[in-house]
Every structure is written in C-alpha cells, then in structure tokens.
Computed example of a mutant assay.
Amino acid sequence: GPVSLEVIGQTSEEMIRQGKLLHEKFSPFGEVAIKIPINPSMKEGDQLEFEGLKAIRQISKEGIQVNVTLIMTPEQALLAAKAGAAYASPFAGRIDDYIRTNLGMKRGEDFQKGDYFDYELLCKAREKMLDEAMKNAGSIREIYESRDINSLLKQGWDNGVHSGVDLIARILRIYRAYGFKTEVIAASIRNPRQVREVAELGVHIATLPFDVLKGMIEHYKTAEGMKRFMDDVVPQYRRLFEE
C-alpha cells in the first residue's frame, strides 16, 4: 500500500501546497498518500474547521490519494468520504481512552495503554442501572426528562459511540450503505483483540505497533504444543536432518 506523508499546515492553501510538494518529491519512488487532518483547528474561534475538507477535496480532484487522519466520529468519516478521500483513519485507541477518562478513570493508574476496553461489559452495566432508574419513573415523559436517566445515558460512550471498535463499525456501515470507495484504516490499535474485532468488521487496513503484532502470534498453548512436539521427535527421525 501507499506510504502516508503528512502535511503540517493548517490552512487549505498551505495543505494543498505541501501535499502537492510531497507528492511531487516522493511519488517517483513509490505509491504515496497525503495525510490531511479532517479538522486542523486547535482552538475554538480560529475558523479553521473546514480547511481540511477544502484541501482534501482539491488534492483528491487532482488525482492524488488522500489519507484523512484524526477521525474521531462517524460524521467526520462521512465528510471525508464525501470530499473524495482515498483513506479514512479513525483512531480507535484514543476513543477508548476518551471514554474511560470521561468515566473518571486515569490512564497509568486505572488502565494501561494496551489494556482492552471491555465496552460490552460497560454497556450491560449501564443498561442495568437504567432499568433500575426507569422503574421509579411514573411516565414516559418523566423518563425522558429525568436528569438522572439522561446523565446515565451520557456515561460510557461518546455521542452514541461505545468504543473505538464501535466507531469503526459505524463508519464501515455508512460507507457500505452509500457505496463509498474510501478505505478505512483502523489507527491507534492497542491490543490483539482490537485487531481481531476490526478484522471481523472487514476493515481494509490496520496500523499497529510491533508489540501488538507480537501479541497476535503468541499463545501459551502454542508454545506448550511446540515443546511437546519437539520432545516427541524420535531419534531416527532427528537423524534424517543430521546427515
């Protein structure tokens, strides 16, 4: 696949110029995609929110592949595809961190970077608490207007997204519904189970660190089986390889 080269500008003009420069310099050596943030804004009021989309659209129109980075919501992924992105990179691990942090958990204390985020358990816990809260309500309107119930509804997810894997699932669902050709790159993958789950979803590409790759190939029973296999090799068979 292509090597992604990232722009460092924030305005569409800067990103377009830098993207073209990177493509011109490096495409002769192999396939290149220009990495552009979906939203280059870093603070409220800087009016840069749509600069990424402008750059994505223009560079894509010129036949240059764009990898849209820093995608944290399905809505951002939808906009990236509509702008013509070849690739969309949702950050699964960072969404998991964000949801856990909003629950009051601290990275390094309550969870480690590579820990699997068991969002299914979290969903079950929230549903149980909601059921208990709803039992005390006298009407549907009371349930709808209850601050306690609404507070519970907001816990353990990010605007309806339960986890990084769920984010990727929702993006893939949107892309398949509308026939977008944009490929999804599962970024910020933190553990082997996440790899399995995004693979089950049919994600196109995943970026992962070496320790995750190493974890994918390791299993206690595999090592145990290998030891037994070697112990069971009879001398006559072993001598075949010593001649």
Rank of each mutant, 00 (worst) to 15 (best):
L5A: 05
P40H: 01
L213P: 04
E224F: 09
M105I: 05
R239C: 06
E24G: 02
K25H: 09
N39F: 00
Q194W: 02
S89R: 04
S4H: 10
Y175I: 06
A33E: 06
V212E: 00
A199F: 03
D131N: 14
K154I: 11
A187S: 07
D118Y: 13
A83R: 06
A133I: 15
Y237W: 05
L21S: 14
G108W: 02
I38H: 01
L53Q: 11
G1F: 02
G225D: 13
R238T: 05
N150L: 14
V66E: 02
R100Q: 15
D166V: 03
Y144V: 15
N67F: 04
I8D: 06
A55V: 00
I95L: 08
E224N: 13
H204Q: 09
P209W: 09
D166G: 07
A55I: 00
K35D: 10
T73Y: 01
V212I: 08
A77W: 05
N159Y: 06
D131G: 12
Q76S: 06
H23K: 13
A86R: 05
S60D: 08
K25F: 09
G93H: 05
A199T: 07
M42E: 07
A223L: 14
V203E: 01
H162N: 13
K20Y: 12
P209K: 08
Y116S: 13
D97T: 09
V3A: 11
I171Y: 06
G84S: 10
V32S: 01
L103A: 05
I16M: 04
P209N: 11
G202P: 09
L172K: 12
K214C: 12
A83H: 01
G63T: 10
A125E: 15
Q236H: 10
V3I: 14
I217V: 12
L240P: 02
S139V: 09
A177I: 04
Q76G: 12
S151C: 06
E24N: 11
Q18R: 01
P90V: 06
V234S: 14
G9P: 01
L21V: 09
L70I: 13
T73E: 02
E183W: 05
H204L: 04
V3Q: 09
N159T: 13
G104P: 02
F111T: 04
I34E: 00
I71L: 07
R94G: 12
C123W: 07
E24R: 14
L153V: 08
L130E: 11
F241Q: 09
F29M: 05
G138N: 10
R239Q: 05
R57M: 08
G225F: 03
N159F: 12
G52M: 02
A187R: 06
K128R: 15
K20I: 08
E120H: 14
F117N: 03
